Simulated scan of single mutants.
Amino acid sequence: MSYSIGQRIKDLREYFNITQKELCNGICSQGLISRIEKDEVSPTALVLEQIARRLSVDMNYFFDEIHNYGNNYIELTKRTIDKKIRECNYEEVLQIITLEKNSPLFKSDQLKQYILWREAICVFHVKHDEKRALELLEAALNIGTASPKIISEYELHIYQSKAIIYSMTNKLDEAAEIYKQLVQKINSLTHIKHKRLMINIYYNAGMNAYDRHDYAEAIKLVDYALTLCIDEDYLYLLGQLFFLYGIALFDYDHKNKDESLKYLDKALFIFTLKNNQANIESVEEEKVRVANTKVD
Protein backbone atom coordinates (compact mmCIF):
# COMPACT_ATOMS: atom_id res chain seq x y z
CA MET A 1 0.00 0.00 0.00
CA SER A 2 1.42 3.42 -1.00
CA TYR A 3 2.08 6.12 1.56
CA SER A 4 -0.53 8.68 0.52
CA ILE A 5 -0.33 12.47 0.72
CA GLY A 6 -3.12 12.49 3.29
CA GLN A 7 -1.31 9.99 5.50
CA ARG A 8 1.92 11.96 5.27
CA ILE A 9 0.19 15.19 6.25
CA LYS A 10 -1.52 13.51 9.20
CA ASP A 11 1.64 11.77 10.42
CA LEU A 12 3.69 14.96 10.29
CA ARG A 13 0.92 17.01 11.92
CA GLU A 14 0.57 14.53 14.76
CA TYR A 15 4.33 14.26 15.16
CA PHE A 16 4.49 18.02 15.81
CA ASN A 17 1.39 17.82 18.06
CA ILE A 18 -0.55 20.27 15.90
CA THR A 19 -4.33 20.15 15.68
CA GLN A 20 -6.21 20.18 12.39
CA LYS A 21 -7.49 23.62 13.40
CA GLU A 22 -3.94 24.95 13.82
CA LEU A 23 -2.84 23.43 10.52
CA CYS A 24 -5.73 24.74 8.44
CA ASN A 25 -5.77 28.29 9.91
CA GLY A 26 -5.69 30.73 7.00
CA ILE A 27 -5.37 27.93 4.45
CA CYS A 28 -8.66 26.05 4.21
CA SER A 29 -11.46 24.66 6.35
CA GLN A 30 -10.86 22.09 9.08
CA GLY A 31 -13.32 19.84 7.29
CA LEU A 32 -11.17 19.88 4.16
CA ILE A 33 -8.04 18.97 6.15
CA SER A 34 -9.96 16.09 7.72
CA ARG A 35 -11.07 14.80 4.31
CA ILE A 36 -7.54 15.16 2.87
CA GLU A 37 -6.06 13.16 5.76
CA LYS A 38 -8.68 10.45 5.20
CA ASP A 39 -7.76 10.38 1.48
CA GLU A 40 -11.33 11.30 0.56
CA VAL A 41 -10.12 14.25 -1.54
CA SER A 42 -6.79 15.42 -2.94
CA PRO A 43 -5.50 18.88 -2.05
CA THR A 44 -5.04 21.46 -4.77
CA ALA A 45 -1.46 22.48 -5.56
CA LEU A 46 -2.00 25.83 -3.78
CA VAL A 47 -3.38 24.22 -0.61
CA LEU A 48 -0.63 21.61 -0.57
CA GLU A 49 2.04 24.32 -0.99
CA GLN A 50 0.60 26.24 1.98
CA ILE A 51 0.41 23.08 4.11
CA ALA A 52 4.00 22.24 3.23
CA ARG A 53 5.11 25.75 4.24
CA ARG A 54 3.20 25.52 7.53
CA LEU A 55 4.84 22.16 8.30
CA SER A 56 8.26 23.44 7.13
CA VAL A 57 8.88 20.72 4.55
CA ASP A 58 9.51 20.82 0.83
CA MET A 59 6.47 19.82 -1.25
CA ASN A 60 8.57 16.90 -2.47
CA TYR A 61 8.17 15.43 1.02
CA PHE A 62 4.61 14.46 0.11
CA PHE A 63 5.54 12.60 -3.07
CA ASP A 64 7.64 9.63 -4.11
CA GLU A 65 11.32 10.34 -4.68
CA ILE A 66 10.88 10.01 -8.46
CA HIS A 67 10.43 13.78 -8.70
CA ASN A 68 13.52 15.69 -9.72
CA TYR A 69 13.61 19.33 -8.77
CA GLY A 70 17.33 19.78 -9.43
CA ASN A 71 17.21 20.60 -13.16
CA ASN A 72 16.06 24.19 -12.96
CA TYR A 73 17.60 27.60 -12.65
CA ILE A 74 16.83 28.06 -8.95
CA GLU A 75 18.43 24.79 -7.91
CA LEU A 76 21.45 25.46 -10.12
CA THR A 77 21.87 28.90 -8.53
CA LYS A 78 21.58 27.45 -5.03
CA ARG A 79 24.15 24.76 -5.80
CA THR A 80 26.52 27.44 -7.11
CA ILE A 81 26.05 29.56 -3.99
CA ASP A 82 26.52 26.57 -1.68
CA LYS A 83 29.69 25.49 -3.50
CA LYS A 84 31.21 28.98 -3.35
CA ILE A 85 30.34 29.26 0.35
CA ARG A 86 32.19 25.98 1.01
CA GLU A 87 35.15 27.39 -0.94
CA CYS A 88 34.95 30.64 1.10
CA ASN A 89 34.34 32.72 -2.06
CA TYR A 90 32.08 35.07 -0.12
CA GLU A 91 32.53 38.11 -2.39
CA GLU A 92 31.37 36.11 -5.42
CA VAL A 93 28.32 34.91 -3.49
CA LEU A 94 27.43 38.50 -2.57
CA GLN A 95 27.52 39.40 -6.25
CA ILE A 96 25.17 36.52 -7.09
CA ILE A 97 22.82 37.46 -4.25
CA THR A 98 22.74 41.11 -5.37
CA LEU A 99 21.62 39.95 -8.82
CA GLU A 100 19.09 37.37 -7.64
CA LYS A 101 17.52 38.67 -4.42
CA ASN A 102 14.99 40.84 -6.29
CA SER A 103 14.31 38.26 -8.98
CA PRO A 104 10.69 37.05 -9.17
CA LEU A 105 12.10 33.51 -9.14
CA PHE A 106 13.26 33.99 -5.53
CA LYS A 107 10.04 35.41 -4.08
CA SER A 108 8.81 32.36 -2.16
CA ASP A 109 9.24 32.51 1.62
CA GLN A 110 11.63 29.56 1.66
CA LEU A 111 13.86 31.05 -1.04
CA LYS A 112 13.83 34.48 0.62
CA GLN A 113 14.88 32.77 3.83
CA TYR A 114 17.69 30.98 1.99
CA ILE A 115 18.98 34.19 0.36
CA LEU A 116 18.98 36.12 3.67
CA TRP A 117 20.84 33.27 5.38
CA ARG A 118 23.54 33.13 2.71
CA GLU A 119 23.78 36.93 2.56
CA ALA A 120 24.34 37.10 6.33
CA ILE A 121 27.30 34.71 6.14
CA CYS A 122 28.90 36.76 3.36
CA VAL A 123 28.30 40.10 5.06
CA PHE A 124 30.03 38.80 8.17
CA HIS A 125 33.08 37.47 6.31
CA VAL A 126 33.45 40.17 3.65
CA LYS A 127 32.32 43.32 5.46
CA HIS A 128 33.09 42.08 9.00
CA ASP A 129 29.73 43.51 10.03
CA GLU A 130 28.54 41.29 12.88
CA LYS A 131 25.50 43.45 13.68
CA ARG A 132 24.19 43.44 10.10
CA ALA A 133 24.86 39.72 9.70
CA LEU A 134 22.84 38.93 12.83
CA GLU A 135 20.03 41.23 11.65
CA LEU A 136 19.85 39.32 8.37
CA LEU A 137 19.75 35.98 10.21
CA GLU A 138 16.92 37.24 12.43
CA ALA A 139 15.04 38.43 9.34
CA ALA A 140 15.46 34.96 7.84
CA LEU A 141 14.16 33.31 11.00
CA ASN A 142 11.15 35.64 11.08
CA ILE A 143 10.09 34.28 7.67
CA GLY A 144 9.95 30.76 9.11
CA THR A 145 7.07 28.59 10.19
CA ALA A 146 4.14 30.11 12.02
CA SER A 147 4.23 27.37 14.66
CA PRO A 148 6.78 27.47 17.51
CA LYS A 149 6.57 23.67 17.68
CA ILE A 150 8.28 23.22 14.31
CA ILE A 151 11.76 24.04 13.06
CA SER A 152 12.82 23.47 9.47
CA GLU A 153 16.22 22.30 8.23
CA TYR A 154 16.85 25.79 6.86
CA GLU A 155 16.20 27.22 10.31
CA LEU A 156 18.60 24.71 11.89
CA HIS A 157 21.23 25.98 9.45
CA ILE A 158 20.41 29.60 10.27
CA TYR A 159 20.61 29.10 14.03
CA GLN A 160 23.93 27.32 13.57
CA SER A 161 25.27 30.23 11.50
CA LYS A 162 24.23 32.55 14.31
CA ALA A 163 26.11 30.39 16.82
CA ILE A 164 29.19 30.31 14.59
CA ILE A 165 29.23 34.10 14.40
CA TYR A 166 28.98 34.30 18.20
CA SER A 167 31.86 31.82 18.53
CA MET A 168 34.02 33.71 16.04
CA THR A 169 33.45 36.95 17.96
CA ASN A 170 34.36 35.23 21.25
CA LYS A 171 30.80 35.16 22.60
CA LEU A 172 31.17 31.52 23.52
CA ASP A 173 28.40 31.33 26.11
CA GLU A 174 25.81 32.80 23.73
CA ALA A 175 26.90 30.30 21.10
CA ALA A 176 26.77 27.45 23.63
CA GLU A 177 23.15 28.22 24.45
CA ILE A 178 22.18 28.03 20.77
CA TYR A 179 24.08 24.76 20.30
CA LYS A 180 22.35 23.29 23.35
CA GLN A 181 18.96 24.01 21.79
CA LEU A 182 20.08 22.75 18.38
CA VAL A 183 21.31 19.43 19.77
CA GLN A 184 18.00 18.98 21.58
CA LYS A 185 16.14 19.69 18.35
CA ILE A 186 18.10 17.36 16.09
CA ASN A 187 17.80 14.56 18.64
CA SER A 188 14.01 14.86 18.49
CA LEU A 189 13.47 15.39 14.76
CA THR A 190 12.93 12.31 12.63
CA HIS A 191 12.36 13.99 9.26
CA ILE A 192 15.85 15.47 8.75
CA LYS A 193 16.97 14.22 5.34
CA HIS A 194 20.51 15.49 5.41
CA LYS A 195 22.59 13.75 8.05
CA ARG A 196 25.49 16.03 7.13
CA LEU A 197 23.59 18.81 8.88
CA MET A 198 23.39 16.77 12.08
CA ILE A 199 27.09 15.90 11.88
CA ASN A 200 27.93 19.56 11.31
CA ILE A 201 25.91 20.70 14.31
CA TYR A 202 27.51 18.10 16.59
CA TYR A 203 30.97 19.07 15.33
CA ASN A 204 30.51 22.81 15.79
CA ALA A 205 28.87 22.31 19.19
CA GLY A 206 31.84 20.14 20.12
CA MET A 207 34.27 22.84 18.97
CA ASN A 208 32.41 25.37 21.08
CA ALA A 209 32.58 23.09 24.13
CA TYR A 210 36.32 22.58 23.56
CA ASP A 211 36.91 26.34 23.29
CA ARG A 212 35.06 26.75 26.61
CA HIS A 213 37.37 24.06 28.08
CA ASP A 214 34.39 21.76 28.67
CA TYR A 215 36.30 18.76 27.36
CA ALA A 216 33.83 16.15 28.66
CA GLU A 217 30.99 17.80 26.71
CA ALA A 218 33.19 18.07 23.61
CA ILE A 219 33.98 14.35 23.80
CA LYS A 220 30.29 13.47 24.13
CA LEU A 221 29.22 15.61 21.17
CA VAL A 222 32.02 14.42 18.90
CA ASP A 223 31.23 10.83 19.82
CA TYR A 224 27.65 11.39 18.58
CA ALA A 225 29.00 12.76 15.30
CA LEU A 226 31.53 9.95 14.84
CA THR A 227 28.83 7.33 15.38
CA LEU A 228 26.65 9.06 12.78
CA CYS A 229 29.53 9.25 10.28
CA ILE A 230 30.23 5.53 10.65
CA ASP A 231 26.56 4.46 10.63
CA GLU A 232 25.80 6.55 7.52
CA ASP A 233 29.11 5.77 5.72
CA TYR A 234 30.06 9.46 5.65
CA LEU A 235 33.62 10.74 5.30
CA TYR A 236 32.24 14.22 5.83
CA LEU A 237 34.12 15.91 8.72
CA LEU A 238 35.49 12.51 9.79
CA GLY A 239 39.08 13.75 9.89
CA GLN A 240 38.11 16.87 11.83
CA LEU A 241 36.07 14.78 14.26
CA PHE A 242 38.94 12.35 14.92
CA PHE A 243 41.22 15.35 15.46
CA LEU A 244 38.86 17.13 17.85
CA TYR A 245 38.11 13.92 19.75
CA GLY A 246 41.83 13.24 20.18
CA ILE A 247 42.75 16.66 21.58
CA ALA A 248 39.62 16.85 23.76
CA LEU A 249 40.37 13.41 25.17
CA PHE A 250 43.92 14.46 26.06
CA ASP A 251 43.01 17.85 27.51
CA TYR A 252 40.24 16.25 29.57
CA ASP A 253 42.77 13.91 31.18
CA HIS A 254 46.44 13.61 30.21
CA LYS A 255 46.29 9.95 31.20
CA ASN A 256 44.40 9.45 27.92
CA LYS A 257 47.64 10.23 26.07
CA ASP A 258 47.95 6.91 24.20
CA GLU A 259 44.28 6.90 23.20
CA SER A 260 44.56 10.52 22.10
CA LEU A 261 47.48 9.72 19.81
CA LYS A 262 45.48 6.88 18.23
CA TYR A 263 42.70 9.31 17.28
CA LEU A 264 45.20 11.86 15.99
CA ASP A 265 46.72 9.13 13.81
CA LYS A 266 43.25 8.37 12.42
CA ALA A 267 42.78 12.06 11.63
CA LEU A 268 46.18 12.18 9.97
CA PHE A 269 45.26 9.20 7.78
CA ILE A 270 42.04 10.87 6.60
CA PHE A 271 43.73 14.20 5.90
CA THR A 272 46.54 12.46 4.03
CA LEU A 273 43.97 10.69 1.83
CA LYS A 274 42.37 14.06 1.08
CA ASN A 275 45.76 15.74 0.63
CA ASN A 276 44.73 18.47 3.08
CA GLN A 277 48.12 19.94 3.94
CA ALA A 278 46.89 22.58 6.41
CA ASN A 279 45.07 19.98 8.50
CA ILE A 280 47.99 17.56 8.26
CA GLU A 281 50.25 20.22 9.79
CA SER A 282 47.73 20.91 12.58
CA VAL A 283 47.55 17.21 13.48
CA GLU A 284 51.32 16.84 13.47
CA GLU A 285 51.67 19.85 15.78
CA GLU A 286 49.15 18.39 18.22
CA LYS A 287 50.85 15.00 18.10
CA VAL A 288 54.11 16.64 19.16
CA ARG A 289 52.32 18.50 21.97
CA VAL A 290 50.62 15.36 23.26
CA ALA A 291 53.70 13.13 22.90
CA ASN A 292 55.98 15.60 24.67
CA THR A 293 53.67 16.28 27.61
CA LYS A 294 54.77 14.46 30.72
CA VAL A 295 52.06 12.49 32.49
CA ASP A 296 52.28 12.20 36.27
Results as ranks from 00 to 15, higher is better:
49 E>P: 12
29 S>K: 07
65 E>F: 14
56 S>M: 04
51 I>P: 05
26 G>A: 07
45 A>C: 05
66 I>G: 13
36 I>H: 01
48 L>Y: 08
48 L>V: 10
42 S>M: 01
39 D>R: 06
66 I>H: 14
40 E>A: 08
36 I>W: 06
63 F>A: 02
63 F>N: 01
49 E>N: 12
43 P>M: 01
21 K>I: 10
23 L>R: 04
39 D>N: 15
40 E>T: 10
41 V>W: 05
51 I>C: 03
26 G>I: 07
22 E>N: 03
50 Q>Y: 14
40 E>M: 12
38 K>R: 12
33 I>H: 04
59 M>C: 10
29 S>Y: 02
25 N>E: 09
66 I>R: 13
46 L>E: 08
60 N>Q: 12
69 Y>Q: 04
49 E>Q: 13
43 P>W: 00
66 I>N: 15
58 D>P: 05
44 T>E: 03
62 F>W: 04
48 L>C: 01
59 M>S: 07
39 D>S: 15
53 R>E: 07
53 R>M: 11
58 D>G: 04
60 N>M: 12
29 S>R: 07
55 L>Q: 04
44 T>W: 04
72 N>F: 09
47 V>N: 00
60 N>H: 08
46 L>F: 12
23 L>T: 12
53 R>H: 11
33 I>C: 08
49 E>W: 12
59 M>P: 06
67 H>V: 09
24 C>Y: 05
73 Y>V: 09
29 S>L: 05
24 C>N: 02
69 Y>E: 01
54 R>G: 03
38 K>H: 12
23 L>S: 08
68 N>H: 00
51 I>H: 04
23 L>K: 01
48 L>W: 02
30 Q>S: 11
72 N>Q: 01
53 R>S: 11
28 C>F: 08
62 F>M: 02
32 L>N: 09
42 S>G: 05
60 N>A: 09
38 K>T: 09
31 G>I: 14
35 R>T: 04
66 I>D: 13
51 I>D: 03
32 L>M: 11
32 L>H: 11
35 R>K: 14
37 E>P: 05
38 K>N: 13
59 M>H: 03
63 F>E: 06
62 F>A: 06
51 I>Y: 05
55 L>A: 14
32 L>D: 09
37 E>W: 02
48 L>I: 06
41 V>D: 01
64 D>H: 14
31 G>P: 10
34 S>K: 11
64 D>S: 15
51 I>F: 07
32 L>A: 12
29 S>P: 10
70 G>T: 01
68 N>K: 08
27 I>S: 06
23 L>M: 11
36 I>Y: 03
34 S>T: 12
25 N>A: 13
34 S>N: 15
58 D>W: 04
57 V>F: 11
46 L>D: 08
42 S>F: 00
26 G>S: 06
48 L>P: 05
48 L>A: 02
54 R>T: 02
21 K>N: 11
27 I>L: 03
52 A>Y: 07
47 V>Q: 01
30 Q>N: 10
